[in-house]
C-alpha cells in the first residue's frame, strides 16, 4: 500500500481525536490538565501514525472497514452478552445443575490475523460458549452441548467478517488473504 498524504492526514486526525478524548476522560475534563496533555497527545498521535504506515503492522489493523456493519456487530454482541449473562445466572440457581458441558473444535473461516482473536474474545461473552484456544481453529467450551451454540458462532463470525469486508466466497478455500482497506 502506497502512503498518500490524505491517508496519512486522515489517520493522524483520527488518532489525535481519540487520544485527546482519552486524556480528557482520564483527567475528568479539567482544563489545567489539557496543558500537560497536549504535547503527549500530539507526540503519541504522530508516533502511532508513523508506525502504522511503516512495516507490516498495516495488515494487522483492527480498524473497521465498514462502520455500519460495526454498529450491527456491537448491537448483536450487546444483545447476546445480555442473553449470556441471563442464561448462566439462571443455570447457577437451578437444581440439579443444568449443565452438559463439552469441548468443541469450531472450524474458523475467518482468515488468520487479528479477526480470529477478536472473535475468540467475543465468543466468551456469548451465551454458553467460552473460547479456550485460538490458533487457526477455535476450541470452544460449551455449557450445553445440545443447545444451538453452532448457529450463534456462525452468525457472530459472519458479522465480524462483514465489518472487515472479508469475502464470504473465499471463506472455505484460501485461508491466507489480507484485508484491503
Amino acid at each position: 500500500m502506497t502512503v498518500t498524504l490524505p491517508a496519512f492526514v486522515t489517520a493522524l486526525t483520527q488518532r489525535l481525536l481519540l487520544f485527546a478524548l482519552l486524556w480528557w476522560l482520564l483527567t475528568d475534563g479539567q482544563h489545567e490538565a489539557a496543558l500537560f496533555g497536549a504535547p503527549f497527545v500530539l507526540s503519541a498521535a504522530v508516533l502511532s501514525t508513523v508506525t502504522r504506515f511503516r512495516g507490516q503492522v498495516l495488515s494487522a489493523s483492527l480498524w473497521p472497514a465498514r462502520p455500519l456493519a460495526l454498529m450491527r456487530l456491537i448491537g448483536f454482541f450487546l444483545w447476546h452478552s445480555l442473553r449470556g449473562g441471563f442464561d448462566v445466572t439462571l443455570r447457577a440457581f437451578r437444581r440439579p445443575l443444568p449443565l452438559k458441558p463439552d469441548l468443541i473444535d469450531y472450524p474458523l473461516r475467518l482468515p488468520p490475523g487479528p479477526t480470529p482473536i477478536l472473535m475468540a474474545s467475543l465468543v466468551s461473552l456469548m451465551p454458553g460458549t467460552l473460547a479456550v484456544i485460538c490458533e487457526g481453529r477455535l476450541r470452544v467450551h460449551v455449557l450445553d452441548r445440545h443447545s444451538d451454540w453452532h448457529r450463534d458462532l456462525e452468525r457472530l463470525e459472519q458479522r465480524i467478517g462483514d465489518v472487515y469486508r472479508i469475502d464470504r466466497a473465499q471463506w472455505n478455500d484460501t485461508p491466507n488473504h489480507s484485508d484491503h482497506n
Binding site: 445466572t89 449443565l99 461473552l125 455449557l143
Partner: peptide, 18 residues
C-alpha cells in the same frame, strides 16, 4: 456451585461482566 474451572469461568466472565 459449578463443577470445574471451565464452567466457573463461564459464570464469572458472563454474569459479572453483565
Amino acid at each position: 456451585r459449578f463443577p470445574d474451572v471451565y464452567t466457573r469461568l463461564h459464570a464469572l466472565t458472563k454474569a459479572d461482566n453483565l
